[in-house]
């Protein structure tokens, strides 16, 4: 008799966990709250991925194909775990979907419920939703993904675009002190893409620290060296409207200009990642811990980042904190290995 393992969340982390378990012959129930698999990269139609600009479809599309064709994976779309109980060392879960509820017993569980994009409307100084031409990185991913890179206000191609880093991250006013880790690299990647495809559009990046950690730094150098992206040190204090249908970024260039007010055709906010409403929900439903940042808390952040505090329940991907797709996929594999070991031991 083969093991039964529940995977909650069908983003990169959950998909890879499900695929690996399926290859081991495990029966996987993959519960996804959306009507499609792929998580945030799919939802916002990411087109090219950092660090190597490969088409997102190579990664996400591949994983989805494997999950949907893998004989041992049963995907529950538009569904959720509505009830969850421990049953000795196993777990009884009720999976609720449009077609009704199903109760099943699982040997172990992987939580891969991911993140939510910070909603920039929560920080009034950026005037998101007030001005059409203020968008954020997920909006831009979608625009690029749909080949529709124009100013929302008038449908014309922009000539000068600003990227503003650390929106919704590293700011106590919005309650997020942490760094969202990927938004520097995403912004630099997007600036490069923009300059490649629309060479007569200028790109500015306003930063307080550029955190293109590790090899992602290559993109940062490339942005300056090959694509003439302007990098300005200073966080934006306010976005207002300017003459000729522009949006004006106001701030202090802490190195060069001092005070500035620069008009742009379009502003892209590098909104960070949050634990979203799903993290506390899953935390209370499954009886696992939430951390002080609003993400799920690993048993030991260094030794076992993929384990929850509850034996038999494992964690993978951005549900434990901001991270890149490669890390999420790696954690999916690590959680799969651990969930499998637990299941086999307690069979």
């Amino acid at each position: 008799m083969s093991e039964n393992i529940l995977v909650i969340g069908g983003g990169p982390a959950g998909l890879n966990a499900a695929v690996m378990l399926s290859e081991l012959g495990v029966n996987v129930a993959l519960v996804e709250r959306d009507s499609f698999l792929g998580g945030n990269p799919k939802k916002f139609k990411y087109k090219f991925l950092f660090p190597d600009m490969q088409p997102a479809d190579n990664v996400i599309g591949e994983l989805i194909k494997k999950a949907e064709s893998g004989g041992n994976i049963k995907v529950y779309y538009s569904s959720e775990v509505s009830d969850f109980k421990e049953n000795g060392k196993k777990f009884d879960a009720v999976i609720k979907s449009a077609s009704g509820s199903e109760t099943k017993t699982f040997d172990s569980v992987i939580v891969a419920t991911g993140f939510e994009h910070f909603d920039p409307a929560r920080d009034a100084k950026y005037s998101y939703q007030l001005f059409d031409d203020v968008i954020d990185i997920k909006d831009l991913e979608r625009m690029m993904g749909e080949n529709n890179f124009v100013r929302p206000s008038n449908g014309k191609p922009p000539k000068k675009v600003a990227f503003i880093l650390c929106v919704g991250s590293r700011d106590r006013h919005v309650g997020n002190q942490y760094c969202s880790r990927v938004c520097c690299t995403v912004s630099v990647k997007q600036a490069i893409e923009m300059r490649e495809h629309f060479p007569d559009c200028e790109a500015y990046i306003f930063y307080m620290d550029i955190r293109t950690y590790g090899f992602f730094e290559d993109l940062y150098w490339k942005a300056m060296e090959e694509h003439d992206v302007q990098i300005v040190k200073g966080r934006i204090a306010e976005i207002t409207s300017g003459p000729d249908n522009t949006v004006v970024c106001k701030g202090e260039d802490t190195l060069l200009r001092g005070p500035f007010e620069i008009p742009f055709d379009m502003v892209v906010l590098a909104s960070g990642m949050e634990g979203g409403p799903q993290s506390p929900e899953i935390s209370s439903k499954l009886g696992i811990e939430l951390d002080e940042h609003g993400f799920l808390k690993p048993e030991n952040v260094t030794l076992s980042p993929f384990k929850s505090n509850k034996p038999g329940v494992f964690l993978a991907g951005a549900c434990t904190g901001p991270k890149a797709i490669s890390d999420s996929i790696t954690e999916g594999a690590a959680a799969a290995m651990n969930a499998y070991t637990y299941a086999v031991k307690n069979r």
Binding site: C166, R170, M208, K233, G234, R235, I236, A237, E238, K250, G251, E252, D253, T254, G258, P259
Partner: peptide
């Protein structure tokens, strides 16, 4: 954080060489 948000929003910063940062 040496970010300059305070200075960007500071009214006298526009008139004098003055920065709360």
């Amino acid at each position: 954080l040496n970010c300059g948000v305070c200075t960007g929003g500071c009214p006298p910063h526009r008139f004098f060489d003055f920065s709360p940062r």
